[in-house]
Design a protein around this nucleic acid. Structure first.
Length: 558
DNA sequence: GTAGGGTTAG
């Protein structure tokens, strides 16, 4: 045996690694007295070539720690392994390491560039993706359809933050040598984020080839822009064209039903979900998403018990599941149940987030648990690692205001670390009206008018407060001021759909043909409601009592 | 080897 120097060791390690005896290579590596660049290269490339990427990454990290830099031999299989490494770091959200691997690559091909562009597109900042794209063009690497699709996506995500990059996306899209369904779907998403659902629909209509992702992108475009009826119409079209929906589809359809409070359609969607094999008992991510959407749909439609049933049926839950249920309880007047569930959430080991705390604080507010609210608010940073945001302050002002602690609510607004907005002042003004505090009401109304002079809300509330106190002159003055400032109040209106007909009602509306019957029934109802108010309960009418006339979500037999 | 779609609050 010749003298064992690092070169001898290396040849053994390299051979073992190349042949796939990685564990043997690994133990040999560990017993080496010294290592050089070549040793590290053998280990990294060995693991990378045999699809043991985790270990390849670990070795790569260790190599850097020991002061070695990657060279063109570090990834023996060449560019592909290196690009895969960029992609791996990108998928882990580790942008700087992805960039570093990319920087250290001896040569780069279209896939390496694409991987880095995607990295910035997914992890941000998305503008960097465009910069990398420009660098790529400068270095004379020909972009392919994947490059363009990623760049279009980057522009699309930028279209959400006011700089209108949707035009840039469109320009690149129009100049793509080859378009494909992915780039088109990215454009749909971009238009949806820029609130141009019409343009999104046009893109969708013109597509030669569509798949379920394109359908889902447009359906979610509608729900995210509040066009829930359109979302459901598109779902019906999808069914007619026999396209198979996925859990993405159901998440959106259920959200549309939830936002429309369309219980009947939501229940149809639930049946459909079961037909498609979502049983919430596999613990898979898809099941959790659909389960969460179902909880939300039921509680938004006022059926807390059905939402709770879904919640209990789920084998695995995430933070959103708990949040949806806690908020569902809170919004339907079940303050105790919301807080109980929150304690159970903590016991289960699930970490609450800022949305959970909004649910908890609003539960306290609606149930009148002032002390609990104060306690959770003051300890949320320490106990749950969630620092109060403006929304949490708004919940507290609402809670204190409802309970009549108007001065405390006022100081909370004035001492909070962020700028108060019209929502938080508006909440206090409403509380001033309830508790008939005209002095503070005037002060708050002025603050509000400073924020949104053209809105009628503060004027109307203030004038009504004066009127309630019998100060008619002051009430008139506010109304006069409104007129002078050119502020008009849009009359409120409500509507109901009965047997496919929409009936609209406005204040002092005398147009409905059966107005006399309606008003006499209203008198009876309000007389009955008065004694019920103290122990108010939510509930829904049974199906026999309701005359459903909604359109079916799909027409195949169940 | 690289690209597109989802739930909770406000």
């Amino acid at each position: 045996m010749p003298e064992r120097n690092v070169f001898t060791w290396n040849s053994f390690v390299t051979a073992l690694a190349k042949l796939g005896f990685l564990d043997e290579a690994d133990s040999l590596f560990r017993s080496m007295p010294e290592r050089d660049q070549c040793t590290w290269n053998s280990m990294v490339s060995g693991f990378a070539q045999h699809d043991r990427c985790e270990e390849a990454l670990q070795y790569f990290g260790l190599m850097h720690k020991e002061g070695f830099k990657a060279n063109e031999y570090t990834f023996a299989s060449g560019l592909s392994a290196c690009s895969a490494l960029v992609d791996m770091y990108s998928k882990c959200g580790n942008v700087s390491d992805a960039q570093q691997v990319f920087d250290e690559m001896g040569s780069r091909n279209v896939v390496s560039w694409n991987s880095l562009i995607t990295c910035y597109e997914q992890n941000g900042p998305a503008v960097e993706a465009l910069k990398v794209f420009h660098e790529m063009l400068k270095s004379n690497v020909e972009p392919d359809e994947v490059t363009f699709a990623s760049v279009v996506s980057a522009c699309a995500s930028l279209s959400a933050i006011k700089c209108s990059r949707i035009t840039e996306a469109r320009f690149i899209f129009d100049n793509m040598p080859i378009r494909n369904v992915i780039a088109e779907t990215s454009m749909i998403r971009g238009y949806a984020m820029a609130a141009s659902t019409k343009a999104a629909r046009l893109m969708f209509t013109k597509m030669k080839e569509r798949n379920i992702v394109s359908w889902n992108a447009l359906i979610s475009g509608y729900t995210q822009n509040g066009e829930n009826e359109e979302a459901l119409n598109l779902f019906r079209l999808l069914k007619r064209e026999s396209v198979c929906p996925t859990h993405y589809t159901f998440a959106n359809v259920l959200k549309a039903c939830a936002d429309l409070a369309e219980l009947h359609l939501g229940m149809q969607a639930h049946v459909h979900v079961l037909k498609h094999g979502f049983k919430f008992q596999s613990g898979e991510e898809a099941d959790i998403f659909v389960g969460n959407s179902l909880i939300d749909m039921y509680v938004k439609c006022g059926c807390v018990e059905d939402g709770y049933l879904v919640f209990r049926k789920m084998m695995e839950r995430d933070c959103v599941s708990w949040n949806a249920m806690i908020i569902g309880f809170a919004q339907n007047g079940y303050g105790n149940e919301a807080l109980e569930l929150f304690r159970e959430m903590l016991d289960s080991g699930e970490k609450p987030d800022h949305i959970t705390m909004i649910g908890v604080l609003s539960a306290c507010g609606h149930a009148g648990f002032v002390d609990e609210g104060r306690h959770y608010f003051s300890s949320m940073t320490k106990d749950f690692g969630v620092a109060p945001l403006r929304d949490h302050y708004t919940c507290m002002v609402d809670l204190l205001g409802r309970a009549g602690f108007l001065e405390e609510a006022k100081s909370m607004i004035e001492e909070m670390p962020m700028q108060p907005d019209s929502v938080i002042w508006g909440s206090l003004l409403a509380a001033c009206k309830v508790h008939r505090n005209i002095t503070l009401g005037k002060y708050v109304a002025e603050k509000l008018l400073g924020l949104e002079a053209s809105k009628s809300g503060p004027y109307v509330l203030l004038s009504n407060m004066y009127a309630e106190l019998g100060q008619w002159g002051d009430a008139m003055n506010v109304r006069k001021l409104m007129k002078k400032e050119g502020v008009t109040k849009q009359p409120g209106c409500s509507w109901i759909k009965i047997q496919g007909h929409v009936h609209v009602f406005m204040v002092k509306d005398k147009r409905h043909p059966r107005k006399r019957q309606i008003h006499s029934l209203l008198d009876i109802l309000s007389a009955e409601m008065r004694p019920e108010q103290d122990h108010a309960e939510t509930g829904s009418l049974s199906s026999e009592e309701m005359d459903y006339s909604s359109t079916l979500l799909w027409d195949d037999t169940m």
